[in-house]
């Protein structure tokens, strides 16, 4: 059972979210049409772990890029233009590009892992939250808790509350 409460105003939405959070009912998701730092604070989200993926990707990319260039040169010993087989300056350029390529790709993977997307399944959702409404979703609440959540949210100024199935 999930409770879905729609708010018109941002401050009501934040207050409602805060109160449900303090009451400790179920799992809370806060849906908004624009990113809200305040909403992230309510949930206690700190620095996103995505940055670890970015760092790892960049480092792996730099090493892999340089290693790929060196390994290719060592496997095929084909001297060109009087340059060394392992000539560092051009390989640094390759390493630079690979740093960025793998940095970006790892960040993308990190985004998917951290956000849990893609999630092509039915989850509690109110389409108006992508237009101009703010929505608090309380998932996994038992009947009494759901009632309590509804009361709290309505008191906070929710326009409407409704119940939907939990997401899988």
């Amino acid at each position: 059972m999930a409770v879905l409460a729609t708010f018109r105003y941002e401050e009501d939405f934040l207050a409602g979210a805060e109160r449900v959070k303090t009451a400790g009912i179920g799992r809370i998701s806060l849906m908004s049409p624009v990113p809200l730092e305040a909403a992230q604070e309510v949930l206690g989200l700190e620095k996103s772990p995505v940055r670890r993926f970015s760092l790892a990707g960049a480092i792996i990319g730099a090493v892999a890029g340089f290693a790929m260039a060196v390994a290719t040169a060592l496997v095929f010993i084909l001297p060109t233009g009087g340059r060394a087989i392992i000539s560092v300056p051009p390989y640094l350029v390759i390493a630079y590009e690979m740093t960025i390529l793998l940095g970006v790709l790892f960040t993308l993977v990190g985004f998917h892992i951290v956000s849990g997307l893609p999630a092509w399944r039915d989850r509690p959702y109110a389409p108006e939250s992508n237009i101009d409404r703010f929505v608090v979703v309380v998932e996994g609440a038992a009947e009494t808790d759901a009632l309590r959540a509804e009361t709290i949210l309505r008191e906070a100024g929710a326009e409407e509350t409704r119940r939907v199935e939990d997401g899988q």
């Binding site: 849906m31 990113p35 989850r123």
Partner: peptide
């Protein structure tokens, strides 16, 4: 399957910044 939850926005913001 984007829903615009605070967690999704948070992650997107971080990834997008990177």
């Amino acid at each position: 399957g984007w829903r615009g939850t605070a967690r999704e926005w948070h992650t997107l913001g971080a990834a997008y910044m990177f």
